[in-house]
Simulated scan of single mutants.
Amino acid sequence: MARFSPLEWPVLRQFRSGDVSGRGPSVTSGKTRATKPRTATSDAVVKSVCPYCAVGCGQNVFVRDNKVVQIEGDPDSPISRGRLCPKGAASEQLVNSAGRVTDVLYRAPRAKDWQTLDLETATDMIADRLLEARRKHWQDTDENGSPLRRTMGIASLGGATIDNEENYLIKKLFTAAGAIQIENQARI
């Protein structure tokens, strides 16, 4: 580390540079001048949409060496015009978090530990259980013979991290399966 010179005191720098109000480069430290934004070193900028709510704010995702280094609001987005809420602004942490679970975890009934499953096995298990619940709780007609064609064995509760497109597909899937108990956190 270089020795500090009294000539580098901010007040002296202000008068030497003519920045008497102390709001310009004279009061910026060497460390701050050497700092570069993470976006300056990115290889690519990818346009994306915030994953949190159904608003659909645009995001610019800055990538270096196939790793997300920064996420900022997209100024070209007609929806958000470059702005992000606190959750959207922190979505880089969602991607790069050391605690992010990237495996399918399953805990068998009455088991104490989780086990890792491959995606194909987990998907098959979910499909089997959905079909079994539908078959077991199917109501074709009511006591008067009026058609119901529904199941009371399947329900869905969506959350704020699901966007409009996902909500639309979930509604179609569960309605096609005969479920009538389809709700979202936004309405509760």
Rank of each mutant, 00 (worst) to 15 (best):
G99Q: 13
R13K: 13
A111P: 00
T28D: 09
S156Y: 13
V49R: 05
G73P: 02
S48A: 15
R149E: 01
P37T: 12
A2W: 07
G145Y: 02
D142N: 12
L169S: 09
D113G: 08
D140N: 06
T141N: 09
C53L: 07
A133L: 08
A89N: 08
Q14R: 15
R107T: 02
T141Y: 02
R38C: 08
T102E: 14
R13P: 02
E92V: 15
L148Q: 10
C85D: 02
Q139V: 10
K112Y: 10
P37G: 13
C57M: 03
V20T: 11
H137D: 09
G159C: 09
A40G: 07
L157Q: 13
I126M: 10
R38V: 10
D76P: 00
N184S: 10
D76F: 04
K87P: 04
I154H: 01
C50V: 06
L119P: 06
P51D: 05
S97H: 10
R16M: 12
L84P: 00
A90K: 03
P51M: 03
K67H: 14
A111R: 01
K112W: 11
N60I: 00
G88D: 01
R81F: 08
D128N: 11
D76H: 05
G73W: 01
T32M: 14
P37H: 13
V46Y: 04
I71D: 00
G73D: 03
A176F: 07
T161D: 14
W114N: 10
W9T: 12
G18S: 07
P37Q: 11
A155K: 03
R107G: 06
L94W: 08
I170M: 09
W114K: 07
S17T: 12
S156F: 13
A177T: 06
Q115C: 09
Q59G: 01
P25W: 04
I154V: 14
G153C: 06
V95R: 02
V20A: 10
R33N: 11
I71C: 04
A111Y: 03
D113I: 03
S29F: 09
R149S: 07
N184M: 11
G82W: 02
R38M: 11
Q181R: 12
R3I: 12
A111C: 06
R33H: 12
K136H: 13
A179I: 05
G178C: 06
E92N: 15
R64W: 02
L130P: 00
S77F: 05
R150M: 12
K172A: 11
A160P: 00
A98E: 10
T123A: 14
D74W: 01
V61P: 02
K31L: 15
P37F: 11
T116L: 01
P51C: 05
L84A: 03
S5V: 00
E120L: 07
G30K: 05
C57V: 03
R110E: 15
A122W: 00
E183G: 07
G178H: 02
R149Y: 03
R129M: 13
V27R: 04
L148F: 03
V49S: 07
G82H: 04
E92L: 14
F15H: 10
Q70E: 15
I182G: 00
I170V: 12
T141Q: 09
K171I: 04
R64L: 02
P6V: 06
N66W: 06
N66R: 13
I170Q: 09
A34Y: 04
S80N: 09
Q93R: 09
A155V: 09
L157V: 14
K136W: 05
T116N: 05
